[in-house]
Structures are given as structure tokens and as C-alpha cells.
Design a protein around this nucleic acid. Structure first.
Lengths: 349, 349
DNA sequence: GTTCCCACCCAAAGCGCTTTGGATGCGTCA
DNA sequence: TGACGCATCCAAAGCGCTTTGGGTGGGAAC
């Protein structure tokens, strides 16, 4: 059943029926009721394709998932982000359009999305340092919000980010306070902006105590479980292994733990681990005392906020760029303890 | 730039330009070239909204993610499924529409998707035993493919599934061959069809040796890491703990391992573990010898196949329901060994 | 030289909705 | 009583594309 048929059935014009259903004031309450009931009864809802053409709005938000040949994978963090964002979209009547594209097609896909008018706005995931997508989307005039930020981009743009620098500065400072001096960092891919900021925070905390990061303790890679496992093994094989490790996600941290167990080492006692915890629903860092000491920030919440910001940018027009910086909380768990030297000292005392 | 402007610019009618761009034969190769070049030069691509209205096809596939109040989460397995399916959609010019909906709104969302004409087909995720969505979508006349199957639904429908029953039968048989008699099963949510089939396979393998499953060794829940951890602790606290455990996903298996380590137990030696491995990109069960003994089947591949089937159902019309049953391979890894009694025997021997 | 056919192109009618720009009729007020 | 305003409704014009149903002209067939 379409508008025409419904209006014929009601003895009204399509105009009136459309207005009644869309809440316009030029229609009496009595007719509106009548129309609404008939619509419900005949299970009518306006054809989305026609509505979109007539209104000129796509009523959908785009999310691009770039796949590279080497890393053909979607981060589980994305799944949680989507649960947060997707709910907001649904509430506002927007659809979520997911595009799985090859790395090299990403720019063209954005262009296409814009010229085809398939979406009203997009969310940029995993921004890199000096990310070209920001200039591209600005040029295209397509509303967007970045989940994260991009250093070295000076123009204003909407973003929602976690204070990664501070989170990692605090995490590092905590380990330093516990007496650790050789601290390893298992970071995300080096060109990722969040990884750069986390590294910066790490470096600053060390610098505050006149220490410098040691190259053989720093690594960057896709944050898989395997990465955590292999990298931890490498670290343990060093002439002077670290006494503490900071891991950028709970997923590689699971691999780190596996490597430690294989080596017969005990978490907190033999080696301390601090993670960044995105509060993933399938990997809760909880219990009476959380398993891991962690900087925590819910990515689901970030998704909700990002969606909110994008929808407002779309409906209320561009305006000044909006920015939200979320603070991560630093939670002490079961994975940290004093450095070996300090521990001995404490035991003697 | 739209069709009209482009055709004016070329001195052609919109008809001809449209035909040229869509590869219809009623246009000379010379003009087609000319049109294609002009389109590229002016960065023209047809407005998706108009195209969809005119053709009556949405050119998009729907995926619903139901969120319950209790389990507001998206399974990481879904992320991998999407990478497989999404690539196929993109290749065929389809968009992927993701709907995050509350459990109780699921039926209405399907109805709405159908009457609004927002999608050309949908994929059903996580089918339950006797899943009502199959009848619903059949009634709505919306093409669909089920990822998994639904027992007790007799009508034909398209599905792509893994042979869960056989996989778990084989896994169980392997453990029995190793001398294990008290085997625990950490399964998915009880109303899930895959969980029912896995349990059936488990039961059959036991029955083949005149054994029966023991209630206190069987559990069903959402497959989180925490579930694996807590459940394993419970199992270890039993008067007679199991000597082997079968886990329905690598994610709870990580929790199982954590619990074992906490208890000072060694994998394979003290307790054997077999998992089902979806070959998730962020959790690879690999290495020279895989970490876990596992029944393996790539969910990314399943995504690709499901997409393929749905697209063909959409373009080639309904026809007879298609079914594909994938076999999981049983791979021996480092997590299994002879049962304690057998081990002693072997050592004495 | 006709006739016919085919290759090539175009005008116009949708697709199903929203929205502009009136109409119509009734109550109100001077 | 007549003018005016307001509430309520409608006809028709898009939105930007595809597609139906012709047209036109030039070469082949007779």
C-alpha cells in the first residue's frame, strides 16, 4: 500500500495524508487521528526510497571499514562502538550504512558516498597522524565526526576522543612510583594517532623523572592476541627484560598473559601489566578487584557521543566544530605490584 | 552535477546518457565513450536516492543486531562475519545496512524494513531453535539467508551453516579416545540453535560409548571471557572436577585458561581443552602447533558465502531454497593430552 | 526508386513521496 | 451585511533517475 492508495481509501488527498502523518499543523486533529489509524491498520509506512528522494536527505550515516591486504580484519572495538552509535541512529530514524572497502579505494568511496548522496554524514574511524580524510571530507562538504583526533591537522573539525596522552602518562607514572624503570610499551600501529598520543604520554612521564624510552622496549602493531603473545616472548628474551609492560588494549594483553604463563612468570609479582581498557562487553576487566590495572574508557559510550554529535551537526547545520575529550579513569587491579628491587626492600624492611 | 546538467552539457538527451552509463546497447560506442569521459571529468555519479526510486531496488542488504537489556553487546564474531560479507556486497554495488535494535523491536524493524523498501534482503544472525523470524520474513516476502539454521522449522529457507553437530561429536570423541570420561561443555546460550546442535553432537559421542552427559558439567551462556573464567572456577570447585573441557568459542576459552592458571593447573597436562575456533582475525589459534586443539571453521568465509547466496537469491529470484553445510576441521593443538588415569598408565608402561 | 530494417537517439511518463501555492468555507467583527 | 481571517484541505510541481514507446535517417534488398 502506498500514499495514493491510502489517501484514496480515506477520501483525502495525498497532501493531507502526508501532512497528517508527518505532524504538520495544517490538518485537523480529527483527520489526523483517522489517518493514523488507517495507516496502522493497513500497515502503511512511507516508502523510504521515495521519501529520501523527495526530501533530499538520505537518512543514513556512513561508516567505512578499510581493509588492507595485510590486515584484513575488523577490530572488535568497532563492534562495541557500533552498539553505542547504532542505538542513537535508530532512535532518530537514521540507518547505519557500513562500507567494507579496500584501503586503496577509501578515498573514492568517500567521494562516491558524497556525490551519490547515499549518506548525510560519516564517522571517521582510526584516524592517523595527519589524516588526509579530514581534508577530503571537508572539501566534499560531507558532515563528519572523527572518533579520535588527528595530530598535525590544524583546521577545525568535529571529534570525540579519549585523553590518551594523559591516560598513558598516568599509567606510566604509576609504574614508576612502584619502582619500575624498565617499562615496555605494546602500542597500536605506529601511524595511528591514538598510538602517537599514548607514546607521547609514556615518554613525558619518563621524562619527568629524567628517563628516556628505550627503543627495544617499544613496539607498534595491530592489536591482536598473537601480537601480545609474540611480543611478550621477545621482551622476555632480552638480556634485561622489562619489569613492567603497558599494553594498548585488553586483546593483546591476553596474549601477554599467555606468554607470561608459558614462561612460568606471575602477574604483578614477577612482572607488572597495565592495559588500556575499552570496556568491551565480551572482555570485561572486572571482578571484586579488576584483573588488570587499567586506564578505562568505554568505547560504547564514545560511540553514543559521536553519533549524537554527528546528528546534531547534520540537523543543526555545520557551525563551529565540536570537540569532546573524554578522560580515562585509572583503576588499580591485580596485575601490578612493586618492582623487584622495591619488593626486596619492602620485604627486608 | 546531475543527469540533466550532464546531458545538456553533452548535447544529448538524459535517456541516452543514462543508457550510455548503464551499458545499454541502444547507444553507439562513440557516444558511450564521450559520455563516460564527460562523467568522469565532471565527477558525476547518479544520485543513489533517485536511482533507487526509479529502479525500485534499494541496493542494500540489512543486518539486524538485536540488543537485549541483559546482553547489550555485539559478538566479536559478527565483526569477522561482516568483513567477509561486506566485501561481496561492495563488489556488487550493494550497501550494507546495519540496524541496532532492541530485542522487543526486532519484529517491527523487519516489518518496517520490508514495507519501507529500505533493503532488498536481510541476513538472519544467531538463529534460535524454532526461530520465529523465518516465518516472519517468509510472510513478508523479503529475501533472506540464515547464518546458521533453525531446528524445528520445517519450511525450506536459505541457510549457510557449519556442521556443528559433527564438529562437537568429533571433538568429544577425541577426548574420549584420550581416556577422558568427565568432560565439561561450556556452550553458548541455550536457546541458540548452534548450541543445541553442539550439545547434540556432544551427547551422541558420549552415547556411542554408553556414557551420558552430566548436568553439573554442562553450561550455557553468552560467550564472554568472563563466562569462561567464572564457569571454569565453578567446575574446578566440584567434588570431582572434569578432566577435559569443550568450549564453544575461543573467547570464553581465554577465560578458561585464566582460571586454570590461577588454580595452578597446566593445560593439556592437568586438564584438556578443545575449543571451537571461528578463525577470528584478532584471535588466531596458530603457531607451529596451534595453541588450542580445535574444531575450526572460518566465519569470514561463512560471511562471504552467505552474501553470495543472498545476492543470488535477490537477483535470480527466489527459486528453491539453497543450503550450504560447511564442515569444520578438527585440528590438534597444545591444549589436549591423555586423561590422568591414562597418563599414569602410559608412564608406568 | 521504393520499401524495409536497423542503428541510434529522444520525449515523456513514471517511481512515491514532499511541498508550494492556492482554494473553500465558516466564524468573527465592525 | 460584508469583509476579513483562519482552519482545513487539495492540485500540481517537483526530487533525479530509468524506461517505454516512439522517431529519424541511411544502407541493404528488391
Amino acid at each position: 500500500m502506498n500514499l495514493k492508495e491510502l489517501s484514496d481509501h480515506l477520501g483525502l488527498s495525498p497532501t493531507t495524508v502526508s501532512r497528517a502523518l508527518n505532524g504538520y499543523p495544517e490538518v485537523s486533529e480529527r483527520t489526523r487521528k483517522r489517518v493514523e489509524e488507517a495507516a496502522k491498520q493497513h500497515n502503511y509506512s512511507p516508502n523510504a526510497r521515495a521519501k529520501r528522494l523527495a526530501t533530499g536527505r538520505a537518512m543514513s550515516i556512513g561508516h567505512l571499514l578499510p581493509m588492507s591486504k595485510e590486515h584484513e580484519m575488523v577490530n572488535p572495538v568497532f563492534a562495541d562502538f557500533i552498539t553505542g552509535a547504532g542505538k542513537r541512529y535508530a532512535e532518530e530514524g537514521y540507518d547505519l550504512l557500513l562500507s567494507v572497502v579496500r584501503d586503496e579505494d577509501e578515498e573514492e568511496t568517500y567521494r562516491d558516498l558524497a556525490t551519490r548522496g547515499a549518506v548525510d554524514g560519516v564517522v571517521i574511524h582510526g584516524p592517523k597522524v595527519n589524516d588526509p580524510r579530514i581534508a577530503l571530507l571537508t572539501e566534499l562538504g560531507l558532515p563528519f565526526v572523527v572518533h579520535g583526533r588527528s595530530s598535525e591537522v590544524n583546521a577545525g573539525y568535529n571529534w570525540v576522543d579519549v585523553n590518551n596522552r594523559r591516560a598513558f602518562e598516568r599509567a606510566t607514572a604509576l609504574l614508576l612510583d612502584l619502582g619500575h624503570r624498565r617499562i615496555a610499551l605494546l602500542n597500536g600501529l605506529a601511524d595511528m594517532d591514538f598510538a602517537a598520543r599514548r607514546f607521547a604520554g609514556f615518554r613525558e612521564a619518563l621524562a619527568a623523572r629524567d628517563l628516556a624510552p628505550e627503543a627495544d622496549l617499544i613496539s607498534h602493531a595491530e592489536m591482536t592476541e598473537t601480537y601480545g603473545y609474540q611480543r611478550m616472548q621477545e621482551l622476555l628474551a632480552l638480556p634485561a627484560p622489562p619489569t613492567a609492560v603497558i599494553v594498548s588494549s585488553i586483546i593483546p594483553a591476553l596474549g601477554v598473559r599467555r606468554a607470561l604463563v608459558d614462561a612460568g612468570l606471575k602477574l604483578a609479582e614477577d612482572i607488572s601489566v597495565v592495559i588500556h581498557d575499552d570496556d568491551l562487553s565480551y572482555f570485561r576487566n572486572d571482578g571484586d578487584v579488576p584483573t588488570y590495572t587499567a586506564t578505562r574508557s568505554s568505547v560504547r559510550e564514545a560511540g553514543r557521543i559521536t553519533a549524537e554529535m554527528l546528528l546534531s551537526a547534520i540537523t543543526r547545520g555545520a557551525g563551529a566544530p565540536q570537540n569532546i575529550l573524554l578522560e580515562a579513569e585509572l583503576m588499580v587491579g591485580q596485575s601490578t605490584g612493586p618492582a623487584p628491587a622495591v619488593r626486596r626492600l619492602l620485604n627486608e624492611g
